[in-house]
Simulated scan of single mutants.
Amino acid sequence: MTKKILSISSGSPGQAIANITMLASISKEITSQLEVPPDDILNALSLSNSISSWNHETQLWLLTYLQHDWWQKLKNTQLLAKFTQARKQLLHHVTPRSVWDNLLLP
């Protein structure tokens, strides 16, 4: 986890501390389920339901974290496009549940 946090912090100690704090605020159960994209529809919907109830800032942070993490593991350009779309949608007030369903459903 530390390597992931340092990587998304762009060399900023203050940002690293903020990222560690943000990651600590997310349940270990959810972060462990998001090590890779869900391959089960029910699990994806359950995760989407949980995440979409979080505050906007936490959801945007999780997008950044997952985008970096999944890119390092999978190198999937289609997944990058889904993250770009998800970020735009969240910033334009699309229903969070729809955004996370689109991102997480296999």
Rank of each mutant, 00 (worst) to 15 (best):
V36Y: 14
V36G: 09
P37Q: 12
P38C: 02
D39W: 01
D40P: 02
I41K: 14
L42F: 15
A44W: 03
L45G: 05
L45D: 02
S46V: 09
S46T: 15
L47S: 00
S48H: 05
S48V: 07
N49H: 13
S50M: 12
I51N: 01
I51E: 01
I51T: 01
S52D: 03
S52M: 00
S52W: 07
S53Q: 14
S53F: 04
W54H: 08
N55T: 06
H56N: 08
H56C: 05
E57P: 06
E57Y: 07
E57L: 08
E57H: 10
T58R: 11
T58K: 10
Q59H: 07
L60G: 07
L62I: 01
L62C: 08
L62S: 07
L63H: 05
L63F: 13
T64A: 05
T64N: 04
L66Y: 02
L66H: 06
Q67W: 12
H68R: 05
D69M: 15
D69H: 06
W70C: 00
W70D: 01
W71R: 08
L74T: 11
K75Q: 14
N76T: 05
N76W: 02
N76E: 09
N76M: 03
T77N: 11
Q78Y: 05
Q78G: 07
Q78E: 07
L79Y: 02
L79E: 05
L80S: 05
L80F: 03
A81F: 02
A81I: 03
A81G: 09
K82R: 15
F83S: 02
F83W: 06
T84N: 15
T84H: 09
T84Q: 15
Q85I: 09
Q85G: 03
Q85C: 09
A86V: 10
A86D: 06
A86Y: 14
K88Q: 14
K88L: 15
K88F: 15
Q89S: 08
Q89R: 11
Q89F: 09
Q89D: 13
L90W: 05
L90R: 01
L90P: 01
L90S: 04
L90Q: 01
L91P: 02
L91I: 01
H92G: 06
H92I: 09
H92K: 13
H92S: 08
H93N: 04
V94R: 02
V94F: 14
T95F: 02
T95V: 14
P96K: 00
P96L: 02
P96F: 02
P96M: 01
